[in-house]
């Protein structure tokens, strides 16, 4: 058996399996959006009843008069050619769905990664500590923290942090993504590539002041999102640590004379990590769909706000575009989760 070869083979297999998974998700999105009540054509008229001839024309234009099989194939073809259509109503009428998504996605990615970093850096060590010192004061403190922080409404925590650090102390900007007009990489030919993520773009520009500006705006939203999630992370890690710390192989490791720290941090922690990676990874994927409450609290135009506006104005093409985009991200992230899992646990690479 080739040891590294089996991991590589696993990754390849897993990538191929992602294709049917994506197709199933896309089909589910297609079916659900067509089964849901609410006629997108009527929504175009904003509740007033349009003349029948106009309805017919709109239906023809949207391709809704075609047989369902044709609609489905057209839908798939357009997605795979990157044509997400045009917004058909409300706030964004006439704008390209793809540009709506790609314009907002970088902001969401930044908060998602920032929140994930905070949640992991706070939650995982707390969970390990609590698990290693079960029923001791540390454990009790972590459990109380975890429960309280997890039930705090996220917008409330956001408002409190804004009030303390943005208004009273004036250490950090209270909202938005940027102070000033010179958003990174917008000056002509200042960057070769532009990601739309201000942190990354300011690094591409090699502009430290811009980087500080971007990070300062990111701190409070990341902290808000991350702290709430850290409670959940700590609980998940703790539960898995308790399981592995009393496992047979941990007892056997102690019997071999392995020092206590190595037993906890090497054997128990690494084994606890496999299910934790799955849970935390899926949580990360959910963040990518947009943390709408955090975005709203900090006035950040991300995917969450886009979806919220599209839903309230029954903007079917934007909803469909965001959901398809989200489905793709879920497929990609679950692929990454499985690969990380296989890297940790040799039994997964079969």
């Amino acid at each position: 058996m080739a040891r590294d070869g089996s991991l590589f083979a696993y990754i390849l297999t897993r990538m191929f399996l992602a294709i049917p998974m994506l197709l199933i998700l896309l089909t589910a999105v297609f079916v659900i959006l067509r089964v849901l009540p609410g006629d997108p054509v009527l929504a175009l008229w904003g509740g007033r009843s349009p003349p029948p001839s106009a309805i017919e024309a709109a239906r023809h234009e949207l391709g809704l008069d075609q047989p369902i099989a044709v609609q489905y194939l057209t839908y798939l073809r357009k997605i795979f050619t990157g044509d997400f259509g045009v917004s058909i109503g409300g706030t964004y009428t006439g704008q390209s769905v793809w540009s709506l998504i790609s314009g907002r996605f970088p902001a969401t990615v930044e908060i998602a990664i920032g929140g994930m970093l905070v949640a992991s850096l706070v939650g995982i060590p707390l969970g390990v500590l609590a698990g290693a010192h079960r029923d001791k004061p540390v454990d009790l403190a972590v459990r109380i923290f975890g429960t309280i922080i997890w039930v705090i409404p996220i917008f409330w925590l956001g408002l409190v942090l804004q009030l303390i650090f943005g208004v009273w102390l004036r250490w950090l900007p209270a909202n938005g993504r940027w102070s000033g007009a010179d958003v990174p990489c917008t000056a002509p030919s200042s960057c070769q590539v532009r990601t739309g993520m201000y942190t990354v773009d300011s690094l591409i520009e090699r502009n430290p002041a811009h980087f500080v500006n971007a990070v300062a705006h990111l701190l409070l939203p990341s902290l808000t999102l991350g702290l709430v999630l850290s409670g959940f992370f700590a609980k998940t890690v703790r539960a898995n640590m308790l399981r592995t710390i009393s496992a047979d192989f941990t007892e056997a490791a102690r019997a071999r004379g392995v020092p206590g720290r190595a037993v906890v941090y090497k054997h128990a922690f690494k084994n606890a990590l496999v299910p934790v990676v799955t849970v935390l990874g899926l949580q990360f994927a959910i963040l990518f769909a947009g943390a709408v409450l955090t975005e709203k609290t900090f006035s950040i135009e991300g995917i969450g706000i886009l979806l919220l506006n599209a839903v309230t104005s029954k903007d079917m093409s934007v909803i469909q575009g965001v959901v398809v985009f989200y489905a793709t991200i879920i497929v990609v992230i679950s692929l990454v989760i499985d690969v990380i899992g296989a890297m940790i646990d040799p039994r997964i690479r079969l």
């Binding site: 047979d248 192989f249 007892e251 056997a252 490791a253 004379g257 206590g260 054997h267 940790i344």
Partner: peptide, 27 residues
Amino acid sequence: REELRKIRGKEIALIFQDPMTRLDPLF
């Protein structure tokens, strides 16, 4: 504690009943 740890596995060793679960699966 440290003295006791040094005895474990070096001077006194233990073989367990269930060899299937006593080795760490990730190592």
